[in-house]
Structure formats: C-alpha cells, structure tokens
C-alpha cells in the first residue's frame, strides 16, 4: 500500500464520517458542520487527483457559499422547532437503510468487477505543466470546446438568481391576505375581538372589500390590524379548532 493510497484512505474516511454526521445529526447546524468537513476532505482528494482548480472551487463555492447559505436559512426558519426533535419514523428509516444497503452492494459489485478501460487522453502531467498548470488547461478547454455549455450555464445561473429573488421576495399585504383567505375565514369586526382583550380584535376590510361568511368548516382568524395579521408568519397559531 503506497503512501498515496494511505493519504487517500484517510481523507476518504474523514469525508465519509462527515457525510454520516450530516445524516445522523439531529440539529441541522450540526449537519451543516458535517457537510463542511466532508466537502473539505473531498477538496483535498481533488488535489491528489491533480484537479487543483476544482479543489479551490470546491472550497469556495461548496464549503463556502453554499454552506453559508444553508446555515443562514437554517437560522431564519425556526431552529428550535425542527421536525426531528419530534421523532423520526422508524419504518422509513428501515426502508431507507435497506435500499441504501442494497444499492451499495450492487454498486460495489459493479465497481470491483469493472473492466472498463478508456483510451488515455493527452493531458498527462507533462502536457499540463507545459501549458502552464491545471487552471490554464481547464480554461482553454472550457472556452474552446465547451463554449456553448458555458454560456448556457451562465443563463441558468441568471435564471436561478431571478427565481430566488421572486421566491424570497416579501409578499404584498393583499397577496398574503388572499392566500390566507383561501383556507381561512378572516373575521372582521368580530364581537369577541372587542370584549375579550386577550384575543386580537378585527382586521380592517380587505382590499377587495368582500367579507366571506364564516362557517363551512373553515377556520376563523382574528387580528388587530392588517399588518399584524400579515406580518405574523405563524398565523396557524391563531386557528380556532
């Protein structure tokens, strides 16, 4: 066993441990830490495989940007009220493990019995160093042979950016009221709101001026004002049974 294999095995082992941490950890923040660990080790493995540029990209994009984004969102949503705190589903875990084990066996069998041998390409270490390093070689390939793909990727990223802006944009008040009224009846000037101070009093009229009658199995929501109603993301708490 050469030194190279040894280093590879160490890095791979830590990477797999990190991945296992992602799956096992209850707290999503811990998961994110496991993910970072896995990504950093994979980046080191890239260095062994002489893919220096990709290793750097892995660190910056994956271990950097994406993880920061994930942790950020994790903090935005309620970190103290995560589903796994309320228990897992044993049957699903068993099924998942069974399927995972089966696939692992199959893939391992396929890998270990493989007799694929491709034709070696021209990019040996000598040619790469001749051209001036991995990054330069990659850049030349990308911007010559894969020009169209690069352009399309740029377009994709642009579309993703616009999509994210649209998704994350705060909804207009009327839209949120409309969305709420699809499933709920918003009670306006409900008498209980007046004589019971602990219950929020009524909303002003919604923008379309229509008040739907309560009933038909729909929940009634009470709110002091429109902004209070719409700013409160957890209006589910106000659902009357």
């Amino acid at each position: 066993m050469s030194l190279q294999v040894l280093i590879f095995s160490l890095l791979a082992g830590v990477s797999i441990l990190g991945a296992l941490g992602v799956v096992i950890a209850r707290n999503p923040v811990h998961s994110a830490i496991g993910l970072v660990l896995s990504f950093l080790n994979v980046a080191a493995i890239y260095l062994i495989a002489r893919a220096e540029f990709l290793a750097v990209v892995q660190v910056i994009v994956y271990a950097g940007a994406v993880i920061v984004l994930v942790v950020f969102v994790t903090m935005l949503v309620h970190p103290d009220d995560l589903p796994e705190f309320h228990g897992r589903r044993p049957l699903r875990v068993a099924t998942g493990l069974l399927l995972g084990g089966a696939l692992l066996l199959e893939v391992a069998a396929a890998i270990l019995t493989r007799n694929l041998s491709g034709v070696p390409g021209p990019w040996t270490d000598q040619t790469i160093s001749l051209i001036g390093g991995n990054t330069r070689a990659l850049g030349q390939t990308l911007y010559s042979d894969y020009m169209l793909a690069i352009q399309l990727t740029a377009l994709l990223l642009l579309a993703a950016t616009i999509g994210a802006i649209v998704l994350a944009r705060p909804e207009a008040v009327s839209e949120r009221v409309m969305a709420a009224r699809r499933t709920l009846t918003i009670s306006l000037a409900h008498p209980r709101g007046l004589d019971q101070p602990e219950l929020p009093p009524a909303l002003p009229l919604p923008p379309d001026g229509q008040v739907k009658p309560a009933g038909g199995g729909r929940s009634i929501v009470l709110a002091r004002s429109a902004s209070e109603f719409t700013e409160q993301p957890a209006w589910g708490e106000w659902r009357t049974p």
């Binding site: 998942g96 399927l99 995972g100 089966a102 696939l103 199959e106 893939v107 396929a110």
Partner: peptide
C-alpha cells in the same frame, strides 16, 4: 426513485 435506481442497477 431510490427503489427504481436499485432495480435498474440490479
């Protein structure tokens, strides 16, 4: 999807 993958690889 996972089941399908397992079956296909098998």
């Amino acid at each position: 999807i996972a089941l399908g993958t397992v079956v296909l690889v098998g």
